[in-house]
């Protein structure tokens, strides 16, 4: 017998379309009267590696901190795709490792990511394998080499399965071998579907890793383009000056 009570379907207001990729609108941040971010506008591609390129003081590291929610902007906003919300990882230029072993650093990150205790040990094993650090699992994290510490910081950031991983100059001060290991790790991360934003000064690294390039200068995004287009035919005068080695003031 049919139910005589009519079904009531609650009204659902149309939701704004979920942006497919990270979008930054009019981001401004000043400190002591100096505009550090000066109306940054950019829409990043949904996947792959976006390199943030620009001279020292351009606002690259600051932009990563704002995207990660560590610093609130004075104006503007960061629009994060719904699926990506709460799943953003950041590796700082000088990563701070806890005063614990390599494995304990990973266990701690998994605990903070609320990974159930029974799943942590196998996940630690996976992460160690990803970073090629299995042999160093019980070593004090702070006694690793610079390259090993960076690899640990990256796999620790992956503990929460981020959909966006931001790396602030991960190969600064590293030798070519350690740089290669980091780049190989980043390539594996992107293969897994994680979007990567990479701050770098190294155009060679941009050539090897990036899919697109955003060029920042004096707190503004002057240009965002595909890697090849940017490296061969940069549109902005600032980017052209930077790529030809001219000092940008």
């Amino acid at each position: 017998m049919p139910d005589p009570t009519p079904r009531v379907i609650p009204f659902q207001p149309p939701r704004p379309a979920d942006p497919p990729a990270l979008r930054i609108e009019g981001l401004c941040l000043s400190r002591s009267g100096a505009a550090l971010l000066n109306g940054v506008e950019m829409t990043l591609s949904p996947g792959g590696v976006t390199a943030l390129l620009g001279p020292n003081g351009a606002g690259k590291s600051l932009l990563l901190r704002v995207i990660a929610g560590l610093i609130a902007p004075d104006a503007g906003r960061v629009i994060v795709p719904r699926a990506m919300q709460g799943r953003i990882g950041l590796v700082l230029q000088r990563p701070v490792l806890l005063r614990r072993s390599v494995a304990a650093n990973l266990r701690h990150a998994l605990a903070l990511a609320r990974v159930p205790r029974r799943h942590r040990a196998p996940r630690v094993g996976e992460l160690l394998a990803l970073g090629n650090l299995e042999a160093l699992a019980d070593r004090p994290a702070r006694r690793l080499s610079g390259g090993e510490q960076q690899r640990l910081a990256i796999i620790r950031a992956l503990a929460a399965n981020p959909l966006l991983l931001m790396l602030d100059e991960p190969t600064a001060h590293l030798d070519p071998q350690a740089t290669h290991a980091i780049e190989a790790l980043v390539a594996r991360v992107t293969e897994g579907g994680t979007k990567v934003i990479l701050v770098t000064h190294d155009t060679g690294q941009v050539q090897r890793l990036a899919d697109e390039v955003a060029f920042l200068h004096q707190g503004r995004c002057h240009e965002i383009a595909g890697k090849s287009a940017f490296l061969t035919h940069p549109e902005s005068a600032a980017a052209r000056a930077y790529l030809t080695g001219k000092l940008l003031l």
Binding site: G69, L70, G89, A157
Partner: peptide
């Protein structure tokens, strides 16, 4: 001062 940003990025609350 040393750990703050790292712990916040890793999702730590005040108790953590």
């Amino acid at each position: 001062g040393e750990y703050d940003e790292t712990l916040r990025v890793l999702g730590a609350n005040r108790f953590d």
